[in-house]
Write a protein that binds this DNA or RNA. Structure first.
Lengths: 190, 190
DNA sequence: TCCTAGCAAACGAACGTTCGTTTGTATCCT
DNA sequence: AGGATACAAACGAACGTTCGTTTGCTAGGA
């Protein structure tokens, strides 16, 4: 019947994702675990530390997925497909952490927010790199702006969390190829 | 030196957009106007009423823009371009209300939230309708799923608020055609 | 002269956090 | 084996602060 720090962080992810950081109290969090709010202080130093833990977890998942996708050999379009599929996997496997990462990072104190923004930039850079490669090798149109195109792709991907539910008729892989197909048609030469 | 209800609502939009509903206190809001928090109650009944006003304002702008775009004669692709440009105009001309509408609607009490969700669905329907028309008249590929494509376009548009600043090298019209061009390449036959 | 915007003061509730204490459970010594 | 020791987990009460809101009053403009 004993709880770990891990339990607290994942409950925090759940509530921060659902109600937001400012919309979640330590007592709410305690209740979620069958504890008093004050009891959480046996596991963490404070509320802000929980937000940091959840958000950095989300950021870490994305970076790991990007590193894996970039390591794939073959045409740039294939790496782009892997980036897209990887992003969806991270989102759907770690929905609470990702939603908190996407929507609640602004509630971080400046020091940790800066780290998160830097991580976000690094991740976006992965998309830009692959797009640039595709332009360079002629598989993508040369009037494609890698920065802009990267933003568009990530916009579609990040918004998935706002509408998609996995239990419906469209499974994860089908969604990934719907996105990748439409994106690729928008990018490729010919 | 006297303030109107209008002043209060637009200050609320500014702060809700920047700090979120739960991150904004009535005292913050008063300070923004050079008043005490309690003085706001001369103009509005309470904090929630301010959120409702700001969010419904945002929703209203979008609906008006959609109605105008749908009334345009000509090919579906032209109406789609108008929807895109109109969406950007609304976002950039009413940034605070739109950001609040997009991010803070979850803090609405159920009754008003339902109205807002309904308005959002109606607006999304405008995009779906145009896409369906384009598929029907053969200008868009017939394997385009209007629902999915509509979501993708709106994902790109709504995310603009998260990264775009109008003072840079890319003006509003250029952004609109970058988006419309890429989207249209992803949709059109051939 | 009345109406309204605003202030000052206060309300009760909730906030994040700290405190002293209790409980259960290992660990070690004999 | 059994009793003392140590520790982590949780409790319950309280801290000071902030929250949204209410009340009663005052000053100024129509």
């Amino acid at each position: 019947m004993s709880h770990s720090r891990e339990d607290v962080i994942s409950a925090a992810g759940r509530l921060f994702a659902r109600d937001g950081y400012h919309g979640t109290s330590m007592r709410d969090l305690g209740r979620e675990l069958g504890l008093l709010g004050s009891s959480l202080y046996s596991h963490v130093q404070g509320k802000q530390e929980l937000l940091v833990a959840v958000v950095e977890r989300g950021a870490g998942f994305f970076q790991a997925a990007a590193d894996a996708a970039l390591a794939v050999e073959g045409p740039a379009s294939e790496r782009l497909r892997r980036l897209i599929a990887g992003h969806l996997d991270v989102m759907l496997d770690h929905r609470d952490e990702v939603r908190t990462y996407l929507n609640e990072a602004r509630s971080l104190e400046p020091a940790s927010r800066e780290r998160v923004v830097a991580a976000r930039d690094r991740y976006e850079q992965a998309f830009r790199t692959v797009l640039k490669e595709g332009v360079a090798d002629g598989s993508f149109r040369d009037d494609v702006d890698p920065k802009l195109a990267g933003i568009f792709v990530l916009s579609i991907l990040n918004a998935v969390d706002r509408w998609y539910e996995e239990d419906g008729g469209l499974d994860r892989a089908a969604l990934a190829s719907q996105i990748a197909d439409m994106v690729e048609r928008g990018l490729r030469t010919g």
